[in-house]
């Protein structure tokens, strides 16, 4: 009985000791030695393709996270044992940021009327000005089989469409119109106009 007890205690001490050593530097280099090295991405120059002047008043920022998945059945193998390989599937969790607002480049003198200290301005309709879906916002939740970059792009486009639908359901464009109207009103009041009338096509 005594011998069994000693053995148990020794075993526990051995396990605890190993665990302690594993946490310490003695084993760390060994663990490090078998760790896969990360894929190296070389620094390469950026090429400026295009520069453009804008006048986009972004008034609503909308964040969303959607799940997009795709799967495809696999055919019989053309050689023995003719088994059906596992079904291939890809599940992505896509985070995105949508910016809506008013494109003020469409604004010209025909949209503005001035009478003494009163100004009226007709703003263009709000629209979605940018949808950001970047690699940093894409998480591969599950990947079975081989998937090309084109297939991933198609799946991400599906996620982006879902985001646009969600944003529309939240009334993003109406809110963008409201905020745009408020900003332009404030700017013109700062400029000294006593009466400012801002008309937005969908709100007024």
């Amino acid at each position: 009985m005594k011998r069994i007890l000693i053995n148990v205690v020794l075993l526990v001490v051995l396990v605890a000791g190993s665990w302690w050593l594993l946490q310490r530097a003695a084993i760390q280099p060994l663990r490090e030695m078998f760790r896969s090295k990360p894929i190296v991405v070389d620094e390469s120059p950026l090429l400026v393709q295009n520069i453009r002047e804008l006048a986009q008043l972004m008034t609503i920022e909308y964040y969303d996270e959607v799940v997009a998945d795709s799967s495809r059945g696999a055919a019989l193998l053309p050689f023995p044992p003719y088994i059906i390989p596992a079904r291939q599937s890809l599940v992505l969790v896509v985070k995105g940021r949508l910016l809506a607002g008013i494109d003020l480049q469409q604004l010209d003198t025909s949209h503005i009327r001035i009478y003494n200290d009163t100004i009226s301005i007709v703003l263009p309709k709000a629209e979605v000005l940018e949808v950001e879906v970047n690699p940093s916002g894409i998480e591969t939740f599950s990947e079975k089989g081989e998937w090309s970059q084109r297939a991933v792009a198609a799946l991400t486009a599906k996620a982006r469409d879902q985001m646009l639908r969600n944003a529309a359901a939240q009334g993003v464009l109406r809110r963008a119109d409201e905020k745009g109207k408020q900003l332009v009103e404030q700017l013109l009041l700062y400029a000294g106009y006593k009466n400012v009338v801002v008309i937005t096509p969908d709100l007024d």
């Binding site: 090429l47 295009n50 002047e53 006048a55 008043l57 008034t59 609503i60 964040y63 993003v172 809110r175």
Partner: peptide, 18 residues
């Protein structure tokens, strides 16, 4: 916050490739 009011005027856009 999922939806936030902002007031940013974007005036330049650059497209880069790598």
């Amino acid at each position: 916050l999922q939806l936030r009011q902002i007031g940013q005027l974007a005036t330049a856009e650059m497209e880069v490739s790598k």
